[in-house]
Simulated assay, not measured.
Amino acid sequence: MRPRVLRGLAAAAALLATTACSAGPEGGAAAPAPTGPGASAFPVRLADCTGRETTFTAPAARIVTSNSSALEMLLRLGAGDRVIGTGFPPGPGTLPADLAARGAQVPVLGRTGIAKEKLLGSGADTYLDTFGAMDLMGGAADAPTEAEFTAAGIRHVFLLSTACAATAKGPRTDLAEVEQDIRRLGALTGTGPKAAELVTAMETGTRAVTTALRDLPAERRPGYFFFDFDAGTQQPIALCNRQVGNAAITLAGARNVFADCDADFRPVGWEDVVARNPDWIQLAVRDRGSEAANAEAYGAAERFLREFPATKGLAAVQQGHLLRIGSEATTIAGTRNADTVRRIAAAIHPDLVAGGN
């Protein structure tokens, strides 16, 4: 699995996996990050799923991000000037247009994972780790130990929505961990009020959808397949129930046809996709940086499904139920996940949910 998935993740600045070593709803009893008027109060204590606490007595000032997920959250919070480096730098179109120019100014410490020596010698006071236990640092042996982080004066903080998928205790069916990550980053950067604003907007958007779908019977939840076209077509990669994309699909009133897969992503066979015969397929291509290039990529993904012997007879293909929604807004944890919920819901339940664009 990993070589194929890694190639795909690198191309999108790492399509992210699921639930972190978390102190959230599934991860254990950590004190929640402060929110509201007192959200910038210090000290701030954040815990991961092992119970390890990280304390901030003042706002983080020199932050390194492992990839574009944490970077995008920090840019949204107005804390992008604190980021002194990143791994898996955002490619063209990975960041929304309003953040792309600022994101491009962040020094690149590694085109994929950041080498241990470079990370420890970066001068960072905080490392935001999207990957955790996943083997995306260029090899688990190359990741610094907690003792090495401490010796270098770097506080090691996981994104709850993405790292340590193996420790998740259940499927991801809502955006609670994403919202908690935004609050946590707001707390450690002293931008709590902005974090609360972003989370409120996400909650408002998803609540509108779930309210509209509250009486939707199970039989009206269509089967849905996330087709990761850029991960390769010889062997499809299933989006599983520990990935944040599963939450977006579920909240939108669909049924992920690979929701029985207890992982983030997993290689499957086309015969598995055919056996589950999805009602809808998301043509999840990665942003090419322009509308024309994106349209070409979506067209290529659609042509493949219509011409490939194993898929051309699928219900979704025959009925034209092919959604053009990019990978990044679905699988990279952030505020755009809420927008994806509405876009999917408006497409598959137009009688209940108004326009998703």
Rank of each mutant, 00 (worst) to 15 (best):
A12L: 03
R266T: 15
I332E: 02
T19L: 14
A333G: 01
P193W: 02
R172C: 10
G320E: 11
L198W: 01
A104W: 01
T94V: 15
L305P: 02
V157C: 11
K194F: 10
R343V: 09
E328G: 02
R102I: 00
E26R: 05
D262C: 03
G269T: 14
P92W: 05
P34S: 12
A297N: 11
T50Y: 14
A176Q: 06
D81T: 13
A115I: 07
E146H: 14
I249L: 04
L213Y: 07
E197I: 07
T206E: 00
P90T: 07
M137H: 14
N277R: 06
P37E: 13
L136A: 15
C49Q: 00
P267R: 11
T211P: 03
A346T: 08
A301K: 03
R183M: 02
P59E: 14
G355S: 15
T150C: 05
T55K: 09
D181H: 07
L136V: 13
T331M: 11
R336S: 04
M137T: 14
R220H: 14
N277T: 02
A248P: 00
G103E: 06
A338L: 11
S327R: 06
A259L: 06
A347R: 01
S66H: 12
F88A: 06
L16I: 08
R62D: 01
Q234G: 15
A238D: 02
A147P: 11
L283S: 04
A17H: 11
R62L: 02
G326H: 12
P96Y: 12
G299R: 09
L160E: 14
P222M: 07
V273Q: 02
V178C: 08
H349F: 04
P34Y: 05
G334C: 10
T86I: 11
A33G: 12
G113V: 05
E179G: 12
F225K: 04
D215M: 06
N337T: 11
G78E: 11
A248N: 04
T210C: 09
L160A: 15
G334D: 05
L99S: 11
A231W: 06
G87C: 07
T206D: 04
C261G: 05
A47T: 13
A151K: 15
D135T: 06
P90H: 07
R62N: 03
P3T: 10
D339E: 15
L159W: 01
N277Y: 06
T173A: 03
W280I: 00
P90I: 06
R45Y: 03
T18P: 08
A292I: 12
P193M: 02
D125F: 02
D272R: 10
R221V: 03
I237N: 03
K194P: 10
K194Y: 09
A17T: 13
Y298S: 00
A259F: 07
G93W: 00
A208E: 15
L16G: 05
G113R: 00
A41V: 11
R4N: 13
D125M: 03
S327T: 14
R242C: 07
C164T: 01
T340W: 01
F227R: 01
P89R: 10
E271V: 05
A100F: 00
L160W: 14
A100N: 05
A124L: 01
G132K: 08
L9D: 09
R52M: 02
D230K: 00
F226K: 03
T55P: 04
D264V: 08
W270K: 03
